[in-house]
Simulated assay, not measured.
Amino acid sequence: MSTKIPKTFKSVIYSTHSVEDCASVLSIHEYTPKEDLSKSIVLKSLAFPINPSDINQLQGVYPSLPPKTLEYSTNEPAAIAGNEGVFEVVSIPPEMNTNSINDLNEGDWVIPLYANQGTWSNYRVFKDPKELVRVNGLDLYTAATVAVNGVTAYQLVKNFISWDIESTGNEWLIQNAGTSGVSKMVTQIAKINGIKTLSVIRDRDDFDEVAETLEKTFGATKVISESQNNDKVFNKEVLPKILGENARVRLALNSVGGKSSSSIARKLENDALMLTYGGMSKQPVTLPTSLHIFKGLTSQGYWSTKHNKENPSQKIDAIDAIVDMYKEGDFISPKNELDILEWDVNNASDTEVLDMIKYGITGKGKKRLIKLNW
């Protein structure tokens, strides 16, 4: 077994929940793993993001929670926080590889296939290579965030509509929250596949600058404001010119809710689909009756955790496709979209690490990503 493996691991754990102050339930715990490491896959953590779903789990309000256990030698049953992250394979038993597609090698970069595995840790142990997905070829920041944002974006674009680009050459999707991480990935994936995107963003002083970045850097076909999205005159007189002749707006991606969701749904063609995968406004999705009766609108939800638990092969397919796009230079690293915090594994005190993660949970602005410096 590799001499790189320490005798003790260090993880960010919790035993209770708090809606008011979810960061307060966390602690740093050092323990001796109970698994036989000579017969296990040992992973070294490279980076992990702090996602809204991670925070919701700490609050105890997320529909899917990891089981709490005494496996980490705690006084009370506990779980390791976090659902996403990228790891390096440190050690793998030779007998575990059988010349199959799931073979792993030391040095491979991998991510967990399933949620609720606990990623906020310096080391983790897995028993089955089928529970891991190789992400060799990605940069650190793409690899650390591909399981949630990347897979979500890919599946939203590819898994629900049978696009027919060759027939019309003018097929569209519309999405709100156009500046979000998922939305930026949606526009890239759509552009690669010949699908045009109409991205809606909130009104702001620097609207033109933000819109230009989304269009020129991330591949959105056209960016409009929420006020334009809601404006009847704009939708009747200006929007048709933007869409062009024989346009088919076949898919709406909603992560805002409220009036924004009804406005993007109104732009869909007959028998189209709206997928709701978030609710940033905390307002309900309200849809006109006429869209259901006269236009045959289908509105359904998408929850990546449930979808990929039921269809793990689809998650693997999405990751493989993103790796290929990244290697071809068609997929932009989210590095500049992240606030990167560094965990000095060999020198940082437990208090410093915990304070950093608490800041990552409570701070405003960009999504935080913890990078482990070894």
Score class of each variant (00 low, 15 high):
95 E>M: 03
70 L>E: 05
166 E>Q: 15
124 R>K: 15
165 I>T: 15
143 A>P: 08
125 V>D: 13
159 N>G: 04
93 P>K: 05
123 Y>I: 11
123 Y>L: 03
145 T>F: 05
66 P>Y: 02
128 D>K: 09
57 Q>G: 00
152 T>E: 09
107 G>M: 14
125 V>R: 09
134 R>C: 12
69 T>V: 12
79 A>N: 09
109 W>F: 11
90 V>F: 04
112 P>T: 04
119 T>L: 11
58 L>G: 08
131 E>Q: 03
87 F>S: 03
102 N>W: 10
87 F>Q: 05
143 A>W: 11
100 S>C: 01
91 S>I: 06
144 A>N: 05
139 D>P: 13
120 W>Y: 12
122 N>P: 10
84 E>C: 01
150 G>C: 02
145 T>W: 02
132 L>P: 02
152 T>R: 11
139 D>E: 10
127 K>E: 15
158 K>N: 13
135 V>N: 03
147 A>P: 04
158 K>D: 02
83 N>Q: 02
106 E>S: 13
139 D>A: 10
118 G>N: 08
150 G>H: 01
76 E>A: 02
82 G>Y: 03
109 W>T: 07
155 Q>D: 12
80 I>N: 01
80 I>D: 02
129 P>L: 10
134 R>T: 11
161 I>E: 11
112 P>W: 04
111 I>N: 03
136 N>A: 07
92 I>L: 13
83 N>W: 00
159 N>K: 12
136 N>T: 06
59 Q>D: 09
156 L>Q: 13
82 G>C: 08
86 V>M: 14
138 L>C: 09
57 Q>N: 06
76 E>N: 14
160 F>D: 00
151 V>P: 11
135 V>F: 00
133 V>N: 02
103 D>H: 08
155 Q>Y: 05
160 F>H: 14
95 E>H: 06
142 T>W: 04
80 I>C: 03
137 G>A: 11
166 E>C: 07
57 Q>E: 13
167 S>E: 13
98 T>G: 03
143 A>M: 11
74 T>P: 07
60 G>I: 12
93 P>L: 03
73 S>V: 01
60 G>L: 09
159 N>F: 02
80 I>L: 00
141 Y>C: 03
151 V>F: 05
91 S>Y: 15
74 T>M: 09
99 N>P: 02
117 Q>I: 00
77 P>Q: 11
87 F>C: 03
114 Y>K: 14
74 T>D: 01
148 V>P: 00
90 V>P: 07
78 A>W: 04
88 E>H: 14
165 I>M: 11
125 V>Y: 12
58 L>Q: 02
122 N>W: 05
135 V>Q: 00
120 W>E: 00
116 N>A: 09
77 P>L: 07
127 K>I: 04
150 G>T: 07
128 D>M: 11
137 G>N: 12
78 A>F: 09
116 N>D: 12
70 L>I: 08
59 Q>P: 13
86 V>T: 15
76 E>L: 13
121 S>D: 05
121 S>I: 10
87 F>Y: 14
102 N>S: 13
